[in-house]
Each structure stands twice: as structure tokens, then as C-alpha cells.
């Protein structure tokens, strides 16, 4: 088992851990964190696979770089939804 393969396998493990969290945890904030862990797992598999040849493949590198920024944007979007849900629930409880 090469080093790259090890990284890829751990990427899959991270993906599994994140997926379990996203499905099993009811707490929205933790669910969001779990989805992020899931995404990191995917990036890791992608990057590890890119380095399994002689030279590292640049295209997956560029794509993961793009993916990280999109993941940040998605997380921010989800966070704003979480905040909104929380505000509405508080209003409901106060009423």
C-alpha cells in the first residue's frame, strides 16, 4: 500500500464519518460540520489519487482548490439558514 493509497483510504474513512454524522445527528450545527468533514474526505481522495502517478496531476489540484472555495461559500449559505431557523424558532417560543 503506497502513501497516496493510505491518504485515499483515510479520505474514504473521513467521508464515511461525515456521512454518518450528516444522517444521524439531529443538531443542525453539528450536521453542517459533518457535511464539511464529508466534503474534506472527498477532496482528500481526489488529491491522493492525483499523486499516484509519476508527477502529481495538476487538474485535480485546481479543481479541489475551486471546490474548497465553493465549500466555504456553501457552508456560509447553510450557516445563514441555520441562523434564520434559530431566529424563527425563538420567535415561535416567545409567542
Amino acid at each position: 500500500m503506497t502513501q497516496a493509497m493510505l491518504y485515499a483510504v483515510f479520505g474514504i474513512v473521513l467521508f464515511g464519518v461525515g456521512l454518518f454524522g450528516a444522517l444521524a445527528i439531529a443538531h443542525v450545527m453539528k450536521k453542517l460540520l459533518a457535511i464539511n468533514i464529508c466534503g474534506v474526505g472527498v477532496f482528500m481522495v481526489f488529491i491522493a489519487n492525483a499523486s499516484s502517478g509519476v508527477a502529481a496531476d495538476y487538474v485535480p489540484h485546481a479543481m479541489v482548490l475551486t471546490g474548497i472555495v465553493v465549500a466555504v461559500a456553501g457552508t456560509a449559505m447553510a450557516l445563514s439558514l441555520v441562523v434564520r431557523i434559530n431566529t424563527l424558532e425563538q420567535q415561535e417560543e416567545d409567542a
Partner: peptide
Amino acid sequence: LTLGRSAQHKADLPVGVLFMVALAIA
């Protein structure tokens, strides 16, 4: 932010279901 108030009312999935989910993911 008292995040996930609904989460406090809404319990996590039952242990049996969690186990099945974990098994499927594994």
C-alpha cells in the same frame, strides 16, 4: 445562538436505526 432548539426536542434516531446506518456506511 442557542443552536438547534428543535434538535433538543427532536431526539436523535433510535439506536437500532443508527446501527443500521453505520453498518450501511461502513
